[in-house]
Design a protein around this nucleic acid. Structure first.
Length: 278
DNA sequence: AAGAATTCCAACCGCAATTTG
DNA sequence: GCAAATTGCGGTTGGAATTCT
């Protein structure tokens, strides 16, 4: 592929965005949506490349972005997710509503790496007894909704023309194995126990029925926004005019459930909370 | 007070993946 | 099936802000 000329060669502006530029792109996207990023600067009257516009919007101007410092819970979640996913910042960001991959990457490099560097794992004799921990094959998640998403992030997308398809049982097994492996590797009985509890709980994660998604996608509209949630299912575009308040509330409730889920898995466990102070 | 060093984060770069014609 | 166009992602950087000496 021939590389497109850089912004400067095309007489386009680089560097920090001005308030005026922000206002232009926000008002344009609010009224027209963002179908084609490359076309947006021309249509909106900005001397920026489409890539720069997309980055500015996704990292800073999107209305669903949460501003401000990361909470302790968010930081701990990032550490745990990074342990599972590695430098898959976008995958981590998908599980932290309101946070961008760029922001998470920055926090990782500026705060969390240092925190982990200074971290000495607690000497915990009860947790070091691997013989009592269930083998990974002993854990069988029936309701592995969240974990199958994690597994997808580890293995790559499950859909798409070239992606090998996994059976649901295969996903469950591999997912449970990877989670349990993390728990066992950490000597973490609490997490292993939680995985078992999840196995026995049919309704651990409240589900939203299929009509929720299909109804909202039934009509097309240029004005749309993205519900970024912990589940991929939440990352769909909602036509504004088709959105009903009750459905929005359902989505918000589900996001809260997602946060509770991660809190239970990663934060609530006393062992996993023993992370170093700055 | 001032200069140096460090921290932080928005933005850029380049590559890979995906979509389009 | 192919090439071009577009999008998404992760690594890196520039410079403003802050802290240190």
């Amino acid at each position: 592929m021939v590389r497109a000329p850089c912004c400067e060669k095309m007489g386009l502006k680089k560097g920090p965005w001005t308030t005026e530029e922000d206002q232009i792109i926000v008002s344009y996207i609010q009224s027209n949506g963002h179908g084609n990023w490359r076309a947006i600067p021309k249509l909106a009257g900005l001397l920026r490349c489409g890539k720069s516009c997309r980055l500015r919007w996704t990292n800073y101007l999107r209305p669903d972005i949460k501003r401000g410092n990361f909470t302790r819970e968010e930081e701990d979640s990032i550490i745990q997710l990074h342990e599972m996913l590695g430098n898959r910042w976008s995958a981590i960001a998908a599980r932290l509503p309101g946070r961008t991959d760029n922001e998470i990457k920055n926090v990782w490099h500026t705060h969390l790496k240092k925190r982990l560097k200074n971290y000495q794992p607690p000497q915990n004799s009860k947790n070091n007894n691997d013989s009592k921990a269930p083998s990974t094959s002993q854990i069988n998640l029936k309701n592995s909704h969240n974990f199958s998403n994690i597994q997808e992030d580890i293995n790559g997308p499950r859909s798409g023309p070239n992606s090998p398809q996994r059976s649901s049982s295969e996903i469950s097994t591999v997912t449970a194995d990877s989670m349990a492996a993390t728990a066992v590797t950490n000597g973490d009985q609490t997490m292993v126990k939680q995985l078992d509890e999840m196995d026995s709980s049919e309704n651990f994660i409240p589900e939203i029925d299929e009509s929720f998604w299909t109804d909202n996608l039934s009509t097309a509209d240029n004005s749309s926004f993205v519900m970024a949630g912990a589940h991929e299912e939440l990352q769909v575009q909602f036509p504004f005019h088709a959105m009903k308040q009750e459905r929005v509330e359902m989505a918000e409730a589900k996001l809260e459930d997602d946060m509770d889920f991660w809190y239970n898995v990663f934060i609530k466990s006393g062992d996993l909370l023993e992370l170093p102070e700055f």
